[in-house]
C-alpha cells in the first residue's frame, strides 16, 4: 500500500495557543480517513496547514513522499490536493459551470498571449475543458443547472458543486470539511453514498472532517480524534467508539451512549 499523506509532528501556534499540536497521521492511498474532534480542536487549522494557507511552525507534511511545507496554496493544488470549505465558498456570482471551469485552472495551460491569439490548441483546450466540466456536473447530479448562478442553487446542490469544483483540478487527495453540515438525514445519506462513490469510481483518497457521527462511523475506514490540537486517538470506527478518552473529550464525564446526539449540539 502506498501512503498518500503523512504528517509528522505537525504543529501550528497562534500566539500562545497551540492550534495543532504535533499531530502524526498516516493516510493510505484510496482510503476514506476522518478527522473528528470537538469544536475548536484544530481540525480546520490542520487542513490549512496541509493546503498551504498556514505555514506550520514545526513538523512535516508529506504528500506521496514529498514535503508540502513551504508551498503556496496554488502549488499544493498543482501537487494534487483539493479541498472544500466548512461554510460553502463558491464563486457565488459565477455560473455553476464557470465555477467548475475555474476549478480546472490548474489543468489548463493557456497563457494570456495564447488566449488573445486563440491558437488551435487553446480552442481545443477550452472545448475539452467545457466538456469535462459538463461531465463533472453530470457526475454530481446537477446536469440541468449548469447555467444557474452558484448562489441561486439550493443548498445541497451548492455542496455538490463545491465538490465538483474541487474534483475539477483532478486531485489525488480530496479534503472535505464537514460536507454534510446543515443537511437533513436524507440528504446526509445521499452525501455518504456520494462520497463512497467518489472514492470507488475516481479512486482518490479522501480526508474528511465531520461532526455527524453517523457519517463518520458509516463511511470512514480510519478515524483520528483531535482535542485541543493534539491527536488523542486513532483507529477504526469500532475502536474509536469504545475509546474512553474520546468519549470523555466529547461529553466530558457522563453518558457514553449518544455520541451522535453530542455531535449535534450547537457550536
Amino acid at each position: 500500500m502506498t501512503i498518500a499523506l503523512e504528517t509528522r509532528a505537525l504543529t501550528k501556534q497562534f500566539g500562545g495557543l497551540t492550534a495543532v499540536d504535533s499531530v502524526d497521521l498516516v493516510i493510505q492511498e484510496n482510503a476514506i480517513f476522518s478527522v473528528i474532534g470537538p469544536n475548536g480542536a484544530g481540525k480546520t487549522t490542520f487542513y490549512n496547514c496541509i493546503t498551504g494557507f498556514y505555514e506550520p511552525d514545526a513538523g512535516e507534511a508529506l504528500f506521496y513522499g514529498k514535503s508540502l511545507v513551504g508551498l503556496t496554496p496554488d502549488q499544493v493544488t498543482y501537487r494534487g490536493i483539493s479541498r472544500t470549505y466548512q461554510n460553502i465558498r463558491l464563486f457565488a456570482n459565477m455560473s455553476a459551470i464557470e465555477n467548475i471551469l475555474v476549478g480546472e485552472h490548474a489543468c489548463l495551460r493557456a497563457s494570456w498571449l495564447e488566449a488573445i491569439i486563440r491558437t488551435p490548441r487553446v480552442i481545443k483546450e477550452e472545448k475539452d475543458a467545457l466538456e469535462k466540466a459538463r461531465q463533472l456536473l453530470n457526475f454530481v447530479g446537477l446536469n440541468s443547472l449548469g447555467d444557474q448562478l452558484a448562489r441561486n442553487l439550493p443548498y445541497g446542490a451548492q455542496r455538490r458543486l463545491e465538490i465538483a469544483r474541487a474534483l475539477a483540478s483532478q486531485p489525488r487527495l480530496l479534503l472535505l470539511d464537514e460536507p454534510t453540515a446543515g443537511m437533513n438525514p436524507h440528504e446526509t445519506t445521499d452525501m455518504m453514498h456520494f462520497i463512497r462513490r467518489l472514492r470507488d469510481e475516481l479512486s482518490i483518497t479522501i480526508l474528511l472532517i465531520e461532526h455527524d457521527m453517523r457519517v463518520v462511523m458509516g463511511i470512514s475506514e480510519q478515524i483520528a480524534v483531535l482535542d485541543y490540537g493534539a491527536k488523542i486517538a486513532e483507529g477504526t470506527p469500532a475502536e474509536i467508539q469504545r475509546n474512553p478518552r474520546v468519549i470523555e473529550a466529547y461529553l466530558g464525564s457522563g453518558a457514553a451512549s449518544g455520541l451522535n446526539d453530542a455531535a449535534k449540539q450547537p457550536a
Binding site: P73, F91, A115
Partner: peptide, 21 residues
C-alpha cells in the same frame, strides 16, 4: 479565457481562488 475566469474568481474570493491553483 482561463485568465479572465481567474481574474473573476479572484475578485469573488481571493482565498478560494488560491486553492483552485
Amino acid at each position: 479565457s482561463r485568465v479572465g475566469r481567474a481574474w473573476e474568481a479572484m475578485r469573488e474570493d481571493e482565498t478560494v481562488s488560491r486553492a483552485m491553483g
